[in-house]
Write a protein that binds this DNA or RNA. Structure first.
Lengths: 145, 145
DNA sequence: TCGCTTATTGCGAGTAATTGCAAATACAAG
DNA sequence: CTTGTATTTGCAATTACTCGCAATAAGCGA
């Protein structure tokens, strides 16, 4: 019983059933070269190898992985959610709503805010993969000209 | 040529054309009793009085109002975006991803984060109507039991 | 190994929001 | 008031995602 991937082992321990679909999706999401993947990209990557997969299953599996804290999801505004494995470490995305450029910002900037929410409201905010919308320096300069 | 609503006047000054549809949508979004409205609610409210309106026009008009800074939009996670007029004042929504309860939090908590982003990255973040996802105190207690 | 139970999948329908394009119309100029 | 034209609208198609339900199959015990 050798499972090849720690995510599989974690899911098994938490009493999820290990299906070929889930194995393929986990394989795809964790071996992706880029930092962020969309559900559609995962679907295509897996579908190339095996046609036994439905897009709804991709969404449902990613949902489980997010709930179990193995991956994180962010809305970068391009009309699709993006997913990242948690071992990339917490980070913030600053998304410009004019040029759609994404700037990666230091997580430490938002950490005090998370602490304050926990202290004041008992609320544990998901800030490890936060997307913040706004206007970047370049576009701001262009607007003010 | 008396326009009744400051938003109309602002749009006219910025060289948008004033159509009956835009007037009705602005009327609906600003006279709504509740703090947040959805595009669908606005559409229904206006459609009751005049059938000359399409849902796509509602979305396009709201988009303009957001871009012009007259209203703000937030994704509270229920599958629908909610809109609020800016004069309600800045506020944060803490959305629990288990029970979907929404807690209104003090804007002052997030203000230092916005300042830091501006200082360090020249990025002007839209934080005046931010939705933050996480787990509320009640659900957290239930999970840890 | 063979069933049994229950989680999971695939499929199709449904939802909120966006977009391309032709028809309609706001508004300025004559 | 009429005309010209660029903007805006309505419509239909499309996208990203979700959901209900019947069929399938994972994992357990015998």
């Amino acid at each position: 019983m050798h499972d090849h991937h720690p995510f599989i082992e974690t899911l098994r321990q938490r009493e999820y059933r290990i299906t070929p679909q889930r194995e393929m999706i986990i394989e795809a999401v964790t071996t992706s070269g880029s930092e962020h993947v969309t559900a559609e990209e995962i679907f295509e990557q897996v579908h190339d190898k095996s046609s036994a997969l439905n897009i709804a299953t991709v969404y449902r599996t990613l949902e489980i992985l997010v709930e179990e804290g193995l991956i994180s999801r962010a809305d970068l505004g391009g009309g699709q959610m993006v997913y990242a494995t948690s071992h990339h470490g917490p980070h913030i995305h600053l998304v410009c709503r004019y040029c759609w450029q994404v700037i990666d910002a230091d997580y430490d900037l938002i950490a005090p805010f998370g602490d304050a929410l926990r202290a004041q409201y008992g609320f544990s905010a998901d800030l490890q993969h936060l997307a913040v919308f706004g206007v970047c320096a370049t576009c701001m300069a262009a607007l003010e000209e």
